[in-house]
Design a protein around this nucleic acid. Structure first.
Length: 272
DNA sequence: ACCCAGGAGCTGC
DNA sequence: GCAGCTCATGGG
C-alpha cells in the first residue's frame, strides 16, 4: 500500500539515528525493517509518499503505531528558537525527518544492554545473532527468511555459552539477568510506560548491567517517554562543548528526548 | 599494535 | 560519593 506523510519522516535519518538496530538498506534502495516478529519493506517515492509492502490491516495494526505517526514532529521542532539555541536549531534542521519509533520495550532493553561500550555495526551484528539463535524463523513478503526478536522466556532459556556465541562478551550475564527478570515477572516493562520517568529509570537501573544511560534509552525508545535524555560519550561532548552552562531542559519539556536525538545524530554525522 | 565504541560494576580512597 | 580500573570484541 502507499501512504502520504506530510510530517517529518526520513527513513535514512531514522536508521542512522542509533535508536534501532534492525533496519537494513537493500541493494535496490528499499528499507527492510524488522521489529519484534514483523518485517516490512518500505520505499520512499518522494514528496512525502511511501510504498509499504504490506496490507492496510497490517499497517494499521503494527506500523502506524511503530512509526509514531500520530505525533507531530514539525510542531516539536517549532518550539526550538534559532536565536536562543542556534546549535539545537541547526541540528534539528540538519536531522529533520527523525522520529522516535515506538519499539518493543523488551527488544530495546536487550539491544541497549548489548550496546554498551560498542559501536553500532557491532551492536547490529550481536542483535542479529541473538535473533538467529533464539528467535522464530519467518518468511517475509519477498520470500526471504528472517528471525523475530526472541521474547524474554526464549532468551532466558539460553545458556551463558549460547549468549557468548552471539559475541556479547561480558554483557552476556547482563542479558541473562534481564531475561530472567522479565520472564519471571519481577520487572513489568509495559507498566513502566505509564509510570513517571524517574520511577521508570530507577526501576530499570535496578537490573544488573543497566545504568542510567541504558535505562534512559529504554525509556525513550522502548517506553516512548519523550522527555528521557540519554547521555553517552557523544552527548557528553555536545554538552561540554555546546552547553557549558547546562542544557535548558525546562524549555523543551516534555520533548527533551527528541532534542537529544537531533543533537546526537548531528554531532555524530559532523564528526565523520 | 593502537584507540575507540549510544557503559557499568567493582574497588579503594 | 567519586575517580580509576576492568570487562570482550570488532571496526577504523
Amino acid at each position: 500500500m502507499d501512504i502520504l506523510i506530510t510530517d517529518d519522516f526520513d527513513l535514512a535519518r531514522i536508521a542512522e539515528s542509533g535508536q534501532c538496530f534492525r533496519w537494513h538498506l537493500t541493494d535496490d534502495g528499499v528499507w527492510r525493517i524488522m521489529h519484534g516478529q514483523h518485517c516490512l519493506y518500505v520505499t520512499s517515492v518522494g514528496n512525502g509518499g511511501f510504498r509499504l509492502e504490506c496490507q492496510p490491516e497490517e499497517f494499521e495494526a503494527i506500523w502506524h503505531d511503530y512509526f509514531d505517526l500520530d505525533e507531530n514532529y514539525q510542531a516539536i521542532r517549532a518550539r526550538i528558537d534559532p536565536k536562543a539555541d542556534p546549535f539545537l536549531w541547526q541540528a534539528s534542521e540538519a536531522e529533520k525527518g527523525i522520529r522516535i519509533l515506538r519499539q518493543d520495550p523488551w527488544e530495546v532493553l536487550v539491544s541497549f544492554i548489548i550496546s554498551q561500550n560498542r559501536n553500532i555495526p557491532a551492536i547490529q551484528r550481536s542483535v542479529e545473532l541473538l535473533a538467529e539463535m533464539a528467535g522464530r524463523r519467518y518468511t517475509d513478503t519477498r520470500g526471504q527468511a528472517y528471525y523475530g526478536f526472541p521474547d524474554a522466556p526464549a532468551a532466558a532459556r539460553l545458556s551463558e555459552s549460547d549468549l557468548t556465541q552471539c559475541k556479547l562478551g561480558y554483557r552476556a550475564k547482563y542479558v541473562a539477568a534481564a531475561a530472567q527478570a522479565v520472564a519471571s515477572g519481577a520487572l513489568d516493562l509495559p507498566a513502566l510506560q505509564a509510570a513517571d520517568l524517574r520511577a521508570a529509570i530507577e526501576s530499570l537501573t535496578g537490573l544488573y548491567g543497566v545504568g542510567v544511560k541504558v535505562a534512559s534509552c529504554v525509556a525513550l525508545f522502548g517506553l516512548h517517554q519523550l522527555d528521557a535524555f540519554p547521555v553517552d560519550v557523544w552527548m557528553k561532548r555536545v554538552l561540554e562543548n555546546e552547553y557549558p552552562q547546562g542544557f535548558p531542559f525546562d524549555k523543551y519539556r516534555p520533548y527533551n528526548g527528541v532534542c537529544q536525538q537531533y543533537l546526537f545524530a548531528h554531532y555524530r554525522n559532523r564528526a565523520s
